[in-house]
């Protein structure tokens, strides 16, 4: 791929979006061998691989993909705190997917229309993100409007992950032409519609950027489980520098 020259803030944005995709891909890959049914085993691996493809394209805009993925420490990662949250039970993973895929589909549509350095990648990944949301919505409906147990677990996941959603709408300086306010309104509408249809309680709208909420991932501030994720993701490469297939 021919990489356009990026400004410093665009490079930060490439890291932000690339790290989101990389870290969520890693979390989803952790399901390998543990998914509730065989079809989901395959589905979660597919979602992870789509995201890994995005991560490679985006990180390659910012530098050497392997160097960036395996040789940076936690404070140098720019991903959202949402995507680094542990998988929890299947409902927890589904709700994390719902929040992220809904946001990513809307953001990529804006980026694809904006014509900047991320337009081609966003346009290419857009149909993939649409399948990801479709997967998350289908399962949210099935679990939320399912048994008392699945309803309770999905509601618990919504409450636990909601505090990480404010960060989705913090402006990223290198993503010129995107509209965080419009993104927030459209995201809230779509997620609310899905949660209602799934008979789940809808929390209040995500906290405005001026109020306190969990966040800071874009500045390299991460939650405690992130260090353990990195240790697992990076240890092979760091133990055997330069190893190749």
């Amino acid at each position: 791929m021919t990489a356009p020259a990026l400004t410093e803030s665009e490079r930060e944005a490439a890291l932000a979006l690339g790290d989101d995709a990389l870290i969520l891909s890693h979390r989803l890959a952790e399901w390998a061998g543990h998914a509730p049914v065989l079809e989901e085993e395959v589905a979660l691996a597919n979602l992870a691989l789509d995201l890994l493809g995005q991560a490679r394209a985006l990180l390659s805009l910012a530098g050497d993909e392997d160097e960036l993925a395996f040789r940076r420490d936690a404070r140098d990662f720019r991903n959202l705190q949402l995507v680094e949250q542990p998988n929890g039970d299947f409902a927890h993973t589904v709700v994390r997917q719902l929040f992220h895929a809904t946001w990513q589909e809307l953001l990529y549509a804006q980026l694809a229309a904006g014509g900047g350095p991320f337009a081609a990648i966003a346009a290419h990944a857009a149909p993939e993100t649409r399948y990801h949301r479709d997967h998350a919505v289908t399962w949210t409906l099935r679990l939320g409007d399912g048994t008392a147990e699945s309803h309770a677990r999905t509601g618990r996941a919504v409450r636990a992950l909601w505090r990480f959603t404010g960060e989705l709408f913090e402006p990223v300086p290198g993503l010129a032409g995107t509209d965080p306010g419009g993104l927030r309104a459209a995201w809230t509408e779509r997620v609310t519609e899905t949660l209602r249809a799934a008979t789940l309680p809808v929390p209040e709208a995500p906290p405005p950027p001026t109020a306190w909420s969990a966040g800071g991932g874009r500045r390299g501030i991460h939650t405690e489980p992130f260090g353990r994720l990195l240790a697992e993701m990076q240890h092979l490469h760091r133990s055997h520098p330069g190893a190749a297939w």
């Binding site: 079809e39 395959v42 589905a43 691996a45 597919n46 979602l47 789509d50 399948y131 479709d134 997967h135």
Partner: peptide, 13 residues
Amino acid sequence: VLSRFSGTLCRAL
């Protein structure tokens, strides 16, 4: 549709 995901990224089951 059994699943929108199958043995490769481009296929559904």
